[in-house]
Amino acid sequence: MKKIFGIILLVAVFVLSACGSSSEEGNSGGDSGDSLKIVAAHNQTDPENPYQKGLLAFKDSVEEKSDGNIEVEVHAGTIGTSETELVEKLQTGAADVVLVSPGFMTSSGINQVDLFAFPYLFESYEHWEKTVQGEVGDKMAQIINEESNNDFRMLGYWTAGVRHYYGDEPLQKMSDLEGKKIRTQTSGVVANFWEETGAVPSSVAWGELYQALQQDVVDAAENAYPYFVQQDHHQTPNGKYITETGHDYTTRFLMISGETYDNLTDKQKEIIDKASEASVEAEWEELHAQEEEYKQKAIDDGAEVNQIDRQPFIDLAKPIQDKVAEDIGVTELLKKIREIGDSVEE
């Protein structure tokens, strides 16, 4: 009996020792890493949307580089079609990674991000890319993290394309906007700009906009080709005429909960960071391809596209930019963005 008991004790010690070794290896952030699930979400419901392509690239990269130890669950409008909802879910821990626009980030009290919502802030994609990938982008990421008390940490800058006007008639000059009910933001710098053009900013939920255009609730709206054409807005009487105002080279923030990020091992952080870079590349590529594709689809479906002299709009926007930049404390950042634009033109 003593001999048998001794053998059992030896086996038990061996098993416990092996388990302890395995646990220590997992917590050290080694190649295998701890098992982890990340919930990533955006507000668009169309599976062909560039947002979905970008988050799927994030998912594929994370799961491949972690050997499946980190699972990413992607939600396309299923845990919130409002960006305000997504910000709240990030704050409460119901989501770990979300995609939101500057306008909705201001609802969390970080007013400086409204800089990226300024109409006619950027003159081209090159101007935009040099801004978000350089000193200005780094500074904004720092502001977001500090002002949110680490609730939000920037993972990367995405774009939602170039926004244009579409409505019940083509615009030939700015005065054509007088009295037009346009679906856009109803507060902040975006609303200020459209009010100055003579239009009337109106609030309509994205999911209800097709019906609103169909039933004259609004006369017009503004967005980028992939977004409004995928929703068939161009096939409504009040969405048929597209004027390429090019008023916004859009910025979107891919963010992770600061608490979630801080609790990752060094190895897991490296995996998330690399996956974020992959998602940026995939989303940009998909968006640029879809802008051309969906513009052509709109034309093929009978929509009419026209150009307009943008200079009067640009001239209108600049003093609005100056005033709001001073109000929210980003005058120096605005100056740097304009300097980047000048260098791109040269």
Rank of each mutant, 00 (worst) to 15 (best):
K2Q: 09
I8W: 05
A12D: 00
V13F: 05
V15K: 05
A18H: 05
G20P: 09
N27G: 14
G29I: 01
G30E: 01
G33H: 04
D34T: 08
L36A: 04
I38R: 02
A40Q: 01
H42T: 06
H42S: 03
Y51S: 10
Q52S: 15
G54T: 14
L56W: 12
K59D: 01
D60I: 07
S66E: 06
S66F: 06
D67E: 04
V72D: 03
G80R: 04
S82E: 08
L86Y: 09
K89R: 15
L90C: 13
L115R: 05
L115P: 09
E123H: 14
S124H: 03
E129D: 06
Q133F: 09
Q133V: 06
D138A: 15
I143S: 10
N149C: 00
H164D: 10
E169R: 09
K180A: 02
R183C: 00
Q185W: 08
Q214C: 02
Q214K: 13
D216S: 12
Y225I: 12
Y227D: 12
V229D: 13
H234Y: 13
T236F: 02
Y249C: 06
M255E: 04
M255K: 03
I256D: 02
D266R: 14
K267L: 12
E281K: 15
E285L: 07
K295N: 08
D309H: 05
F313Y: 15
K323H: 14
L333K: 14
R338W: 12
I340G: 02
S343A: 10
V344E: 00
